[in-house]
Design a protein around this nucleic acid. Sequence first.
DNA 1: CTGTATCCTCATTGATACTG
DNA 2: CAGTATCAATGAGGATACAG
Lengths: 132, 132
Amino acid sequence: MVTSEKPASRPQSLCFNVYAKDCPTRMVLDRLGDKWALLVLDRLQNDVVRFNALKRDIHGISQKVLSQVLKNLERDGLILRTAYPTVPVTVEYSLKPLGTTLIEAVSSLTHWAETHMSEIQAAQHLYDASKG
Amino acid sequence: MVTSEKPASRPQSLCFNVYAKDCPTRMVLDRLGDKWALLVLDRLQNDVVRFNALKRDIHGISQKVLSQVLKNLERDGLILRTAYPTVPVTVEYSLKPLGTTLIEAVSSLTHWAETHMSEIQAAQHLYDASKG
DNA sequence: CTGTATCCTCATTGATACTG
DNA sequence: CAGTATCAATGAGGATACAG
């Protein structure tokens, strides 16, 4: 796609180049865009949790999606997967330090959400009322 | 779905109840999950921009998606749409204060991304090498 | 210029069944 | 218990054409 080029006049506030596919911002947002990933990270924040416990706690997630999410998070170095050779096998997931720092960064966003949610809802009602 | 109930032992770090559909965190993440919305907000951070300028600057976005995104952001009270009755019509989009605060909150995430991206990539390479 | 409408494709997801 | 495999359905998103 685009390799560089954006209106040159203003500072690159979000990212060196938000249009580049390899932009860090894009990647983090993709990760957050996965609505389940963050719930998994959150659930692991203070606990070591097994696969089925995650599935049970994060209500609504399917087995397939959970295993996908876990694989991605593990690949990113955010969580640790530990398998014990019991019968049947036991697998535990836990947060790595990198995952911990991400959760901490995210909390500023959640704080924003809690603070401004009422404003957003008010704006939505206003908008809906005026537009039909 | 689930109305309450989650392992009660640990603090509700992310949200009062991440399983509830009306959880603020969910909503903000949904908004961020829309990969284009943030690019639009970013582009508006210091400028007032017209529709086609946005379309041109945010390379790869389609007309349809751009208009959807703009409508959502306007509905949320994050941006302001101003139409001038010229011929042909002129429409300008700008950031409202609420949108500005969101962008600021997001910047902590982008900072995390820039700081830790190399660690993630290293982890990915390690993972790919070990798993084939 | 600023959109809306339509069609179409492709990726994500859920459900289900099966394996080590 | 902890996944993988397969299939069907749903919907987001692109391309294109058209309208105010």
